[in-house]
Amino acid sequence: MDWQCDRTEDLVDNYLAGEADDADWDFAVKHAEECPECRQKLDDATSYESLMKSAMLAMAREVGTRPSKSPETFLSSGSSRRSARISMRRRNYTYIAIAAASVIIILVLFIAYGSLVKIKKSTPEELARLQVNTMSKAVALIRHPGKITNDRQLVALLEPKLAEKLKQDELPQVKEGKFLDPWEKPFRVMTDETSGRVIFYSVGPNGIDEGCKGDDVFPSN
């Protein structure tokens, strides 16, 4: 390779960098007529440049020279279909999360309420207290208590009144014509000495009538 080949090689690099000098180009073309290797280099360089320019043009055609819609429509909002898809996906995730959280909260509340009700139901003392209160108030409404001669009459008179005040599962059981407390013992009846009222009371968990003392359950007022 002589200096002419070196100069031609430099020209090729300059040509591909867009900085070929006309004088250098003329020189290289003239030299290439006599040098097959340099002619090949010049041919390769021009073919390569042509390929690159054609490919760039094809890619530019694919992209288009301007946006398909006005830049104003997407510049400030960034609302391309891609952004919209991402936003929609995020929104969907948010909705799903809210829905899931709501379901969980409802379930927790439901379970908590159920537990509370269960606790309330499962406390015989509370149920007994409610029953004696209600029964004692109801019996005070009976106009002619003197007509009541047995438990069955009492039950028949009180049951409709209790049904108005208590829920189904709060109503005292009735067995053999008697109201039974939560421990399935008959409620007792006595007259309060101070107020003169007829009151019902339960003998409580121990089943022993202690005259409204000990664990007996009696009206709160």
Partner: peptide, 8 residues
Amino acid sequence: DLLQDIFA
């Protein structure tokens, strides 16, 4: 779409 996002 990416191009629009880049410009935005």
